[in-house]
Design a protein around this nucleic acid. Structure first.
Lengths: 241, 241
DNA sequence: TGTACATCAGTGAACGCGCGTTCACTGATGTAC
DNA sequence: TGTACATCAGTGAACGCGCGTTCACTGATGTAC
């Protein structure tokens, strides 16, 4: 989504530009490796420079500050989950519940493979760091991938939009922006169901990765799939599984 | 739960012992205040000492290391949510769904009031810090408070224990330890339902506190209560709300 | 009640460390004519 | 194709800072007789 990445395969540009793009990559890669070792607060420009065998001051040719490097990592992490979710959504067809489970499974697979990137974006906010606006769009991708499954499902008549109970007025009114992004197809009732599935999904993943299911669940794969099936069927039909 | 707190109101002991207990309190209080400002990784013994107007080395008379101070904060945080949950469970009677919503509301209220303590225990794990065993029991309290609602409900015949669908064998087998703590009353089916409610609850709270519902939900109170009602009814009956 | 000794709380200096960021610099790469 | 100048990448030293932890010490509080 970045201007640089967008057409990286086209114009080789100058040797200098190519070298710059490569080194920028190497820096964020090294930073991500360090993130895995010491967490987001331990992330240090100097350590990154050391790993790359360059002077710490040289990193400043690529990132104006530590925070800017952090932002790059956050954007990349959001893009990575977003990619995984979109890919899973594209790769499946048919019943919305089935597609939702596929997207959830892809998101969890990414999280399990990249626990520190997951913690960076879905764990505690980094104190003293406030996410700049450039993280907003990448962050939305993963949610839109899931939401589109339901708009598709509504179009096909496979998703129930009617309410099985009253939705509080103040909850109803709060979805304007979300619906603007996802189209008009989604009723308030459906949105609350989707959000329930969504929070249950991230709650399950966070509990697993952050150790709160330790000693309670043994087979995380099976457990997750089971729970996502229930929650997906509920989101789609409004019925309990 | 600590040996010191357990009977703090009894024997005044010596003046020295009382002073020690007081200062220990002041240190953890100052540390929690600092936690709120700079997060768990920024928490520094020296800053705590500075705030208390004492030499940094003096803190070592009370906590052997920074990690030990962190552990104290974690234990206190777990005890605080545990207290809130137990109090809410005791204060309500009647329908299990109603009691569960009360407990959930109490947990969220604590979290909203103490977002940094919440992040400390339910957010990203502190890198390089592994929770010692003394945190295990305090951590379990809040879960047991919720679980007991369901064991009570089963005893009263108000909670459905029958399966509405098959529970995978590997999920079934994994609950041994949990059931040992909560009694035999809970079927595997019921446990998966309770866990779904549990992860949905923490998922919703984390999403709210960590900013992932920003611009999506406006009235967090109403939204949370609505979702918890759905999820509680589902946990109790196996039916969708 | 008084004395002698042991225990504990708190001090202040020091250890070695790593951090983010700046700055003047050298040398290489790119560009305009 | 060649030259003159501008741009950029990378260096190494330095700035000021805060951290966790240790240590020998002083003085106050507690305890045994």
């Amino acid at each position: 989504m970045t201007a640089t990445d967008g057409h990286a395969h086209s114009a080789p540009a100058t040797a200098r530009a190519r070298a710059r793009a490569e080194l920028t990559r190497e820096i964020t890669d090294a930073a991500r490796r360090q993130l895995a070792e010491v967490g987001s607060d331990g992330l240090s420009l100097r350590a990154v420079a050391r790993e790359l065998g360059m002077a710490s001051s040289a990193v400043y040719r690529y990132f104006a500050s530590r925070d800017e490097l952090l932002t790059a990592l956050i954007v990349e992490a959001y893009d990575a989950v977003g990619d995984a979710a979109e890919k899973a959504a594209r790769a499946t067809s048919g019943r919305p519940a089935h597609r939702f489970v596929a997207v959830a499974t892809a998101i969890r697979a990414w999280a399990v493979e990249h626990p520190h990137d997951y913690a960076l974006i879905y764990g505690s906010p980094v104190p003293g760091y406030s996410a700049p606006t450039e993280t907003v769009n990448p962050a939305a991708r993963v949610a839109l991938a899931a939401l589109n499954i339901f708009t598709d499902g509504v179009a096909d008549g496979e998703v129930a939009t009617t309410a099985s109970g009253p939705v509080p007025r103040s909850v109803k009114g709060a979805f304007g922006r979300l619906r603007a992004e996802a189209g008009d197809a989604l009723s308030d009732e459906l949105l609350t169901r989707v959000l329930l599935a969504w929070t249950a999904m991230f709650g399950t993943i966070s509990f697993e990765l952050f150790g709160h299911l330790h000693g309670i669940v043994e087979d995380y794969d099976t457990f997750f799939e089971h729970q996502m099936r229930r929650v997906a069927r509920f989101a789609v039909t409004g019925d309990a599984p």
